[in-house]
């Protein structure tokens, strides 16, 4: 089922500027689409408009070719998993799952069948009669998932569902979520600002910034082929280094592809090592190149304060024009400064 947002405008009451305008997004049926972007870019807003929890100021939303712009949330055939779980605190785990089913006047036997099925699927069977206050954070999130699954929705909407869990549990749940997706094969729309989550789980990534779609593609496309400087710097761990050139363009490179030494064929830089952070597999090294500092990730280390030469092979350089859009044309000029999109 495709979900289409068409020329959406959203302005919150009492604010002076719209959060988004002329927003067009098509989410393919059966995709695991991740809305990714920094805080405040409008991810939650977009998701809530799809869910019907937030009214659109202009434009239309279609689910499966049906115009649902004015349809109640409960009638859109979608399920949502919230960041804070949002399970009903006074109902048992079973009660939480049953609640939604009862509202749709399904007969008792089917309710039971569905509840038992999802309890089993999420490994919650033995907790069925517990109250949420007697569950751990991870288990609560499972209840929220179970509740969503039980309705056999056309699409799952999730707003940072893992952000309240500790690091280990988050990785575990990430795997579970991927398995769930593979099993259900329905549309997932997942909001996060964590690009590792986006990269590992998504089949499609929509990078948002300031209420605008910067790029919509597979994780590989977004990582290897960023369409503008924002995406290049937002994606990656850390993102690309960018240097502003005297002719107006920009040149960028990934921290992993900068090497120590000199080369005829590539961009040569020189500087002083500022910090050297050990990351396990490799080191994150910050180098002051005079007009700012750049980051590289290498297995070999350098001492803090050491003078280093480094280069980036020509084939690993990315060029951006004066509007910060990706271009195939080699940009020329002297390096003026190190550049970051967000400042």
């Amino acid at each position: 089922m495709a979900i289409v947002m068409q020329d959406i405008k959203k302005q919150y009451a009492g604010t002076s500027a719209p959060v988004m305008e002329h927003f067009d997004l098509t989410i393919e049926e059966g995709s695991f689409t991740v809305l990714l972007g920094p805080s405040g870019c409008g991810k939650t807003t977009a998701l809530r408009m799809i869910a019907g929890l937030e009214e659109v100021t202009g434009g239309r939303i279609f689910i499966d070719e049906n115009d649902v712009t004015d349809v109640d949330p409960g009638e859109r055939n979608i399920a949502m998993v919230f960041q804070n779980y949002a399970i009903y605190p006074h109902m048992t785990v079973r009660g939480n799952i049953e609640f939604g089913l009862k509202n749709y006047q399904i007969d008792k036997e089917e309710i039971n069948e569905r509840v038992n099925y999802v309890l089993d699927m999420t490994g919650l069977s033995e907790y069925a009669d517990r109250k949420p206050s007697q569950l751990s954070g991870g288990q609560r999130q499972r209840v929220a998932l179970a509740r969503a699954i039980s309705k056999s929705p056309k699409a799952f909407l999730m707003d940072e569902p893992l952000s309240n869990l500790d690091a280990k549990l988050r990785i575990q749940m990430r795997t579970d979520m991927i398995q769930l997706y593979n099993r259900l094969k329905c549309t997932f729309i997942y909001v996060t600002h964590d690009q590792t989550e986006a990269m590992t789980m998504g089949t499609d990534i929509v990078v948002l910034y300031k209420g605008m779609i910067q790029q919509h593609g597979t994780p590989q496309e977004v990582y290897n082929n960023p369409s503008n400087l924002f995406v290049a710097q937002f994606i990656g761990d850390p993102g690309m280094n960018a240097l502003r050139l005297s002719d107006g363009g920009y040149v960028g490179f990934q921290p992993r592809l900068a090497q120590f030494g000199k080369s005829e064929n590539g961009l040569n830089l020189q500087g002083t090592v500022l910090t050297n952070e050990f990351m396990g597999h490799d080191c994150m090294i910050t180098v002051d190149i005079g007009c700012g500092s750049i980051v590289m990730r290498r297995r070999e280390t350098r001492k803090v304060g050491e003078q280093v030469s480094l280069f980036i092979p020509q084939e690993n350089l990315f060029y951006f024009d004066a509007d910060q859009n990706r271009t195939g044309t080699v940009q020329t000029g002297e390096v003026v400064s190190v550049f970051h999109v967000d400042d």
Binding site: F82, F99, R147
Partner: peptide, 27 residues
Amino acid sequence: VNNEVLEAARLDGASELTVMYRVTFPM
């Protein structure tokens, strides 16, 4: 009462009356 819980109920197909009596009221 946490707004997310009420929204979850609305997404669960509950009418406003159900949201009030079955979800908010017990809380």
